[in-house]
């Protein structure tokens, strides 16, 4: 499969969905990689003490992993020109082997010049967890 080009893309195109599995180990790994050691992302005692149901994933981990729906499509993370979202619901990560399952879908909602806008949907436990996640990529002609 070759990467998409402007000529091959149309508004309404659906991207291949991405499944993300997030375990406690993944939270520790992201904490180390990003430098975000906020305790609510790895310590159940503190997370529940501040009113959360359990340890929650870093919003930036969900946002980062969700970007793969676009980067796996274009095969080039360097072609992302903008990416934004709101963090609307926490992703609760239980202390078990499976962790949390997140489903990411995306579809092309706009093409302007060489810029292609992808509106995403990021779902955990039956509800969206990111608000208006939108990624814009630059494609070749």
């Amino acid at each position: 499969m070759t990467p998409p080009t402007l000529a091959s893309v149309s508004v309404g195109d659906e991207l291949a969905p991405v499944h993300i599995q997030v375990t406690r180990a993944d939270l520790i790994r992201y904490a180390g990689a990003s430098g975000d050691f906020n305790v609510i992302h790895w310590n159940e005692r503190v997370a529940t003490a501040v009113g959360l149901p359990n340890v929650i994933a870093h919003g930036m981990l969900t946002m980062g992993a969700a970007s793969r729906v676009a980067t796996e499509w274009i095969r080039d993370p360097g072609r992302v020109v903008s990416y934004s979202c709101r963090f609307t619901r926490p992703v609760v990560v239980p202390d078990d082997e499976a962790g949390a399952s997140i489903e990411v879908t995306g579809s092309v909602t706009g093409i302007e010049g060489d810029l292609v806008t992808v509106a995403m949907k990021v779902v955990f436990d039956g509800s969206t967890v990111l608000g208006k996640p939108t990624i814009v990529v630059r494609l070749s002609a």
């Binding site: 993944d26 793969r68 796996e72 095969r75 993370p77």
Partner: peptide, 29 residues
Amino acid sequence: RAIGESSPLSSDVDAARAAGYPDLVAPPT
């Protein structure tokens, strides 16, 4: 690796250079 980005452009210097980048490409976030 922490976000599951599998693009070789973020892990393989030769692949990144072949795609026209000076070195490994960081994921968007």
